[in-house]
């Protein structure tokens, strides 16, 4: 009986363990080993931290990382600012069918691949695109306007891609806030802002944090959007990794970059959690 239960548990855990070991643990260990190799001659390697040193010694790499991190944080903030009212409306103001319809509307764009969605933005924003033509037709500008290949375009793309991942956790946490708690806030003399600040936002904090972590990580690790909307010179950290692996064929440096991305992004998330007084347990629980 007991051994049977144990076998059952093992079988249940097996897919998870296989997934963790085969797809996460082994590649990462291998990648880490690669990142510790330094090429000293043709086909000759030795173990050293040279690749990591390169990251810190070359200002371009460090600046690119910082720029990526700051842009990602900004994208997270903008996503939060847009998603919060939307989620509040879906969770607390909309009723019945209109609520599910609105939620579906947030979901629908994500049925299309990210590539196609990004092309959609290119059609809108490019020099010969719809917005440019519209502005010319309206006589607001005299010639075609190029709106692609700048930071604003990257930001628009990142926010658009991330929206759902912010809306879902926010709607879930806001739905769990009983209407009567909000009403009690007003009943006891609260104004719109104070009820928001003292009741709604503290209650939604776990949702805000988990949404923000997901959006931040997605933005930081995004390759497609910055490349397509920001152009080749958009200086996104993932592009650096890509070029090391594919263009320069320098797997050692690429692997080191990959590890730095993992390390530094974890550090930023940890710092943000500390700063806002949240814990990962509370967020996930």
């Amino acid at each position: 009986m007991k051994s049977g239960a144990r076998l059952g548990l093992m079988l249940l855990l097996a897919p998870l363990l296989l997934w963790l070991i085969l797809l996460i643990l082994i590649p990462h260990v291998d990648m880490f080993l690669v990142s510790l190799r330094e090429r000293v001659g043709v086909g000759e390697y030795r173990i050293s931290l040279a690749n990591y040193l390169t990251f810190f010694q070359e200002p371009l790499y460090l600046w690119t990382f910082l720029r990526t991190a700051v842009m990602s944080i900004l994208a997270t903030l903008i996503t939060l600012l847009i998603a919060f009212p939307v989620s509040y409306f879906i969770a607390k103001i909309a009723r019945g069918r209109s609520r599910s319809a609105l939620f579906l509307l947030c979901l629908v764009p994500f049925w299309v691949s990210e590539l196609v969605r990004t092309f959609g933005w290119m059609i809108l924003l490019r020099e010969t695109g719809i917005i440019s033509n519209l502005l010319q037709w309206a006589g607001l500008v005299s010639g075609p306007v190029e709106m692609l290949y700048n930071d604003a375009a990257i930001m628009v793309g990142l926010v658009y891609t991330s929206m759902l991942f912010m809306v879902v956790p926010l709607v879930t946490t806001l739905e769990s806030l009983p209407d009567e708690v909000i009403e009690a806030g007003y009943d006891l003399g609260g104004t719109n802002t104070s009820v928001m600040r003292e009741i709604v936002i503290p209650h939604a904090a776990p949702g805000i944090v988990s949404g923000s972590i997901v959006v931040f990580m997605l933005s930081l690790g995004n390759y497609l959007t910055p490349t397509m909307l920001g152009g080749k010179d958009s200086l996104w950290f993932t592009e650096l990794i890509y070029s090391q692996f594919i263009v320069r064929f320098n797997w050692e440096l690429g692997a080191a970059f990959g590890f730095m991305l993992l390390l530094l992004s974890s550090l930023i998330v940890w710092g943000m959690l500390r700063l806002t007084g949240q814990t990962l347990e509370r967020t996930m629980g």
């Binding site: 009567e180 009690a184 007003y186 009943d187 006891l188 009741i199």
Partner: peptide, 21 residues
């Protein structure tokens, strides 16, 4: 007079105490 200015207060059915405080 809006609810937050009325000289009445309400004890709600499920009490609606603020769990975050």
């Amino acid at each position: 007079v809006s609810p937050n200015k009325r000289p009445v207060n309400m004890v709600f059915q499920h009490l609606a105490l603020f769990p975050m405080m």
